Simulated scan of single mutants.
Amino acid sequence: MSRRLQEYMLASAKNGREVVRTGPFTVTITGHDPNVYLNYAVPDPGADPSAADIEALVTAFTTRGRTPRLEYLPKLAPAVEPALLAAGFAVADRLPLMECGPSDATDQPVPPGFELVTPKTDAEIEAMLAAQHEAFGEEPPTPAHVAATRAKAESGQLQLLARELATGETAGGGIAAAVRDGISEVAGIAVRPAYERRGLGAALTLHLTRAAFAAGATLAFLTPAGDAQERVYARVGYRRADAVLFLSHSA
């Protein structure tokens, strides 16, 4: 299952990005956004990189104005972490990977006074992105972000925004990546600070998870950013199954 998940994560990372092969690494670059979460490499299963491989990996990022970074399931390539740490990389994070099957999903009601809708227009897509960027402390979305997000929706990505009924204000948003090999990743679950602690995060997660199952997924997964998020996802029916390692270099 770990190999299947890693293959899915790599296929999703390649979608809409420049893809560069260097040594035992696949580097994915988002041209319109230097955000580290949208630019990273994945090692091959069983990779055992040499010093030259690591130097070429760093160069693939720096020549494109990006921070060298990796996201992967470490147990599939145990030799990568010590080799990269010795070469100046550092562990940026090590997060649990949680899974949910169709029979595991647990009802989470949409809080009173809110609705969950699929963004259809560019204005709605921008509103969803603005809520996500605000929640994650990022700069406001640009037209390039909107265009890229619209293209992903056309390629099967599931998108959802939470909106306050009384004011029409967007309260949050999230996505479920296009289903591949029966798998979908739920990600970008965000609630604007003014609307936190009302159950919107759980409702967004549940509805996106069930939408992924309706689109053909037999397994959904996500990576919580911390204990609080993990508790929310556990209420929806997710359980720990693996771990994701994030390595970065300050070059």
Score class of each variant (00 low, 15 high):
Ser2Pro: 10
Ser2Cys: 09
Leu5Gly: 03
Leu5Asn: 03
Tyr8Leu: 11
Ala13Ser: 12
Lys14Met: 14
Lys14Pro: 01
Asn15Trp: 04
Arg17Phe: 02
Val19Phe: 07
Val19Thr: 15
Arg21Lys: 13
Pro24Gly: 07
Val27Cys: 05
Val27Thr: 12
Thr28Trp: 06
His32Arg: 04
Asn39Ala: 04
Ala41Leu: 06
Asp44Thr: 12
Pro45Thr: 08
Pro45Ser: 12
Ala47Tyr: 12
Ser50Ala: 09
Ser50Gln: 08
Ala51Asp: 14
Ala52Phe: 05
Ala52Pro: 00
Ile54Phe: 03
Val58Tyr: 02
Arg66Asp: 06
Pro74Asp: 11
Leu76Lys: 09
Ala77Lys: 02
Glu81His: 05
Leu84Lys: 11
Leu85Asn: 02
Ala86His: 08
Ala87Gly: 04
Gly88Ser: 08
Ala90Pro: 00
Ala92Leu: 13
Asp93Ser: 15
Pro96Val: 08
Leu97Thr: 14
Met98His: 07
Met98Trp: 01
Glu99Trp: 14
Cys100Asn: 13
Pro102Cys: 07
Pro102Ile: 11
Asp104Lys: 03
Ala105Tyr: 00
Thr106Ile: 12
Gln108Glu: 14
Pro109Met: 08
Pro111Trp: 07
Leu116Tyr: 06
Thr118Met: 08
Thr118Asp: 06
Asp122Phe: 00
Glu124Val: 10
Glu126Arg: 15
Ala130Gln: 13
Ala131Gln: 06
His133Gln: 10
His133Trp: 04
Glu138Ser: 08
Pro141Asn: 07
Pro143Ala: 09
Val146His: 02
Ala147Arg: 10
Ala151Pro: 11
Lys152Pro: 00
Ser155Gln: 15
Ser155Asn: 13
Gly156Tyr: 11
Gln157Ile: 00
Gln159Glu: 13
Arg163Glu: 04
Arg163Phe: 06
Leu165Ser: 13
Leu165Asp: 06
Glu169Leu: 13
Thr170Ser: 10
Ile175Arg: 10
Ala176Trp: 05
Ala176Thr: 09
Ala178Pro: 02
Val179Pro: 10
Gly182Asp: 10
Ile183Thr: 08
Ile183Tyr: 09
Ile183Ala: 03
Glu185Trp: 07
Glu185Val: 03
Val186Gln: 10
Ala187Met: 03
Arg192Asn: 01
Arg192Gln: 13
Ala194Glu: 15
Ala194Asp: 14
Tyr195Glu: 01
Tyr195Asn: 02
Glu196Gln: 15
Arg197Cys: 04
Arg198Glu: 05
Arg198Cys: 02
Leu200Gly: 09
Leu200Arg: 05
Leu200Met: 11
Ala203His: 02
Leu204Met: 12
Leu204Lys: 07
Thr205Ile: 00
His207Arg: 15
Thr209His: 11
Arg210Val: 12
Phe213Met: 08
Gly216Ile: 11
Thr218Pro: 02
Leu219Pro: 03
Ala220Phe: 02
Ala220Arg: 06
Ala220Leu: 01
Phe221Val: 14
Thr223Met: 14
Pro224Leu: 10
Gly226Asp: 15
Asp227Lys: 10
Arg231Asp: 12
Val232Pro: 05
Ala234Thr: 14
Ala234Phe: 07
Ala234Ser: 13
Val236Leu: 10
Gly237His: 01
Gly237Tyr: 06
Ala243Glu: 15
Ala243Pro: 00
Val244Glu: 14
Leu245Asp: 09
Phe246Thr: 10
Phe246Leu: 14
Ser248Gly: 12
His249Ser: 11
His249Asp: 13
Ser250Ile: 02
